[in-house]
Amino acid sequence: MKKTARILALGGLVAALALTGAVTARAQDQTLLNVSYDPTRELYEQFNEAFAKHWKDTTGGNVTIEQSHGGSGKQAQAVIDGLGADVVTLALEGDINAIVTKSGLIDENWRAEFPNNSTPYTSTIVFLVRKGNPKAIADWGDLVKDGVEVITPNPKTSGGARWNYLAAWAYANKASGGDEAKDVDFIKQLYKHVPVLDTGARGSTVTFAQKELGDVLLAWENEAYLVLDEFGAENFDIVYPPSSIRAEPPVAIVDKNVEAHGTQALAKAYLEYLYSPEGQTIAARNHYRPSDPSVVTDPALVAAFPKIDLISIDDPLFGGWKTAQPKHFGDGGIFDQVYTPAQ
């Protein structure tokens, strides 16, 4: 039994080493951690490959880009708690602002650091319906028709779901002529048609496309096209409502982290490359609307985006994220009222 004791002692030693000795190793080749939200997996897979090649060509250095994906809010919280992101590419300005205010890791003026308010690509919210659109859904008002089941994630946990919500709000506001009580009513009606509130955009897509639940999925434009690729274009149709929202997923350098990692130049080059012709083309190919369409190498990609009426979060209706976030999604905000049982 002496052997057992020795094995036990060895196990303990290994554990102690692992627990105390996990000092951050500084690799000779640089690594960069990009903390992103859920639907960007395919985009960054392609982009990272292109950037690594570009970096090698221009500087001769090797770069390994690590990816972390998850709900936008959860990812921001992880960065606040110490996840060593060099850059964040999240779904909402509000999530990056949370990193700014809660941890000070990112400079307050991050939006001015890159062109177009640090938004290299935009997107919008569209409807994904079953083939042939059996419930004849054409506009936001159709979502609250009898017997229509709408799939959308929880705005509390999903960035995409907030854009869904805000796009619906913009529609309601236009239809009611600015009567906020009616708008709240429409939102309440809408969420009565939601049978499942997944925590993330990807969860909702799986619920709609794989589990075949619901009649319409409110989805990122790029996500809707991805469903056609992954689950077969013969099963679904994309419906563009006459009006929607311009979703602006921003990017930022996590200043304090890149300082600690010595990756300032790399991080800056990485995000700048998103604005380059290659970066913009990769974005367009993944159905993100490029912020500078003129540089996209293949004009057909740009022409493929239908022109619809897009409202911005900075429109007076919303007054920017800093106003919209607490009003709609904060504790006790309008979304909370939707699920407050009638007294």
Binding site: T20, I80, D81, G84, K102, S103
Partner: peptide, 23 residues
């Protein structure tokens, strides 16, 4: 052990990663 905890800055100063790492 998170960056916002009392231990966070000490761990960071000594380059010890606990959460978001193997430990």
């Amino acid at each position: 052990f998170g960056a916002q905890s009392a231990l966070g800055p000490i761990l960071k100063a000594n380059h010890i990663e606990i959460i978001f790492a193997v430990p």
